[in-house]
């Protein structure tokens, strides 16, 4: 009986896995094809492959620069978000002042306006403040993001406040409670946040493209878009580039996964 259930479980798990990764396997397969090979329904038994597309991408030293820019901006923004989203989320979740309520309203509000409308006035602001075409334009507005605040706030609300009260009775300072007690409890949410922020930044195209113009400060998604010629998509190189772009986020996920599932067992809520 048990064996049947285990088999069944793995069958379901595997079936879902196939559906989830098939399009990405397709992407990987295309990235290994010779340039110009047909990409529609190619022969499955054909095992020829070439790494040339990957080599081509790294041929120019520009790629290293783009990678550095993406990584630099990504890490800065992610670190900023972990700290700031946590602070803001905590104050919204645990303090019941009008200010906090209004704070939350602005957080949700900003989410509801399409980026395409905001981008023009934002561009004007950046030019006026001399931030246009600098790293600041890619970092400052994104150091704390509304989705992140909302996520962490919801998570904090699901944690019983008894832990903090116990610490308070023990005479711990508010800052100590914040960073020593609550923050560790939020590790799963902060790990999700880190992945999401890093990923969003890593793949962000429109804002970096509009807000920069020097080649030296452009990021990977912009570089990949520039690689495309007029009227034609170079599938093999695009898929290779996209494959490479997934790797850092995947690595981050594998590292963070432990934080997510470690959750409360390791954090040690004992009521």
């Amino acid at each position: 009986m048990r064996a049947v259930r285990t088999t069944l479980r793995y069958a379901v798990l595997l079936a879902v896995l196939v559906i989830m990764v098939f399009p990405l396997l397709w992407m990987f397969r295309v990235s290994l094809l010779e340039t110009g090979a047909s990409i529609s329904l190619f022969d499955v038994s054909n095992l020829d492959f070439t790494l040339q597309n990957y080599l081509d991408l790294f041929e120019s030293d520009r790629m290293a620069r783009f990678l550095f820019n993406s990584a630099f901006v990504g890490v800065a923004v992610t670190l900023g978000n972990i700290l700031f989203c946590f602070m803001v989320a905590y104050t919204i979740a645990r303090y019941r002042y009008i200010v906090n309520k209004m704070l939350f309203v602005t957080v949700i509000l900003i989410l509801m306006i399409p980026a395409h409308i905001i981008i023009i006035p934002l561009y004007v602001l950046m030019v006026r403040w001399g931030l246009y075409d600098t790293y600041w334009a890619l970092i400052l507005p994104w150091l704390v993001n509304p989705i992140g605040i909302f996520l962490v706030k919801q998570y904090i609300e699901s944690i019983p406040p008894s832990m903090e009260e116990a610490a308070r009775i023990d005479g711990a300072g508010e800052m100590a409670i914040l960073f020593r007690v609550v923050m560790p409890l939020c590790r799963p949410a902060l790990a999700v946040l880190a992945i999401q922020v890093f990923f969003t930044n890593w793949n962000s195209f429109l804002f970096p493209f509009i807000l920069t113009q020097r080649e030296g400060i452009r990021t990977i998604p912009v570089a990949l878009a520039l690689y495309q010629g007029h009227q034609a998509i170079d599938w093999q190189h695009l898929m290779a580039g996209s494959g490479i772009a997934v790797v850092p986020v995947l690595v981050l996920f594998v590292i963070m996964q432990r934080q997510i599932v470690a959750g409360i067992t390791a954090g040690g809520i004992k009521q």
Partner: peptide, 17 residues
């Protein structure tokens, strides 16, 4: 604690909105 968002909102998003 709410300052990071307050500043970001006031500096970058209020005007565009």
């Amino acid at each position: 604690l709410g300052l990071p968002w307050l500043l970001t909102f006031a500096l970058f998003w209020l005007y565009p909105i």
